[in-house]
Design a protein around this nucleic acid. Structure first.
Lengths: 178, 178
DNA sequence: TGTACATCAGTGAACGCGCGTTCACTGATGTAC
DNA sequence: TGTACATCAGTGAACGCGCGTTCACTGATGTAC
């Protein structure tokens, strides 16, 4: 190998990380392979030394992003109090306004629905981990995940900032009553 | 005018209707102007006699689709029992598997989040109508809308059909307890 | 009423651009002897 | 140890395709006189 294996692995990880961020910010379709490679400090031609296609990168980026989310839930999910704190953060203006650092599902679930079985599988596995990391019973965890996700999705899709804030606040309030 | 005004208006409506269906099925980016025009029984060149851009069509399609949703809520939303029936339908396998006939928000909210202020405004106006048509108090209506939407979004994004069914069933059960 | 003209939705070929992907080439590192 | 060769991630130009948009042209209808 021309480059040490560890350097190659580090570059690979950087590509996935930047892709994950950019995809969450703007969606799969609105991010080019060139942009991702530039963000990772490389040129676009080298991309195919790491992945066979853009689709493969999407799969890796979803898996990476979901793993981050699972980790975040894991660090809060053991107690009911922790889960409330997590929900409050999830439904914050900060999360709404910074999709690149935020939940992969909120940003990409709809595009994943139109994607390959591999990408859906990566999404699904992450969701399973997220549910497992949650201490409430499974049905309740699914319900709360749906409500949180729906709240942020709606908050990002409306035009009026006050309406958007109202959506976040309403879901936050109802979730905290559970 | 070469064609009678009513015929032109009918064609215009057909374009919007087919666009709304196709966009809900596959998203804005995965549907071409040519496909929409073909579905409406015309050739792509005529498109620009009706709209100035694909973006304008997206705006019209969102407004159209949201109006349909508002009508559906209106016909159920007056009573608590009606709302339960609506939620059960919304969280059905049928709705999950037929996005073209389904809720515009579930299919397009994430793309709308990356769209023009005009498209977001059309989305927002529809959401306001949907909330107004709902007889429960506003915060509760927002919360339930978020949970329903999140449930179907998740159910469409996972690979395993049983997991997908479980998501729908869980949200259905928790919603029906309210 | 009849005739010439204006209008404009519709047609389909063509344009231009962007993006995913390919490819010939580079050059630093590892390996063989 | 030194030298020749093989490897392969990386570079950047180029390719090919699809899609939004444009445009010259058509022809049915409405209007003017």
């Amino acid at each position: 190998m021309r480059y040490p294996a560890e350097e190659t692995a580090a570059k690979h990880e950087r590509i996935v990380k930047e892709a994950s961020r950019l995809f969450r910010e703007r969606g799969f379709e609105n991010v080019t392979v060139s942009e991702v490679m530039k963000a990772a400090g490389l040129t676009h031609g080298a991309f195919y030394a790491h992945f066979n296609s853009k689709e493969e990168l999407q799969e890796a980026a979803v898996a990476y992003g979901q793993a981050i989310s699972a980790g975040r839930v894991r660090s809060h999910g053991a107690t009911k109090k922790g889960l409330k704190a997590f929900a409050a953060r999830y439904l914050s203006a900060r999360h709404r306004d910074n999709p690149g650092d935020g939940c992969t599902m909120v940003s990409l679930a709809q595009e994943v629905a139109h994607s390959t079985p591999e990408i859906k599988a990566a999404f699904e596995q992450g969701l399973e981990e997220i549910l497992s990391a949650n201490s409430v019973d499974r049905k309740e965890a699914i319900f709360q995940t749906a409500a949180l996700l729906g709240g942020v999705v709606l908050a990002r899709a409306v035009k009026d900032p006050r309406f958007s804030d109202e959506i976040l606040e309403s879901v936050r309030q109802k979730i905290s009553q559970r």
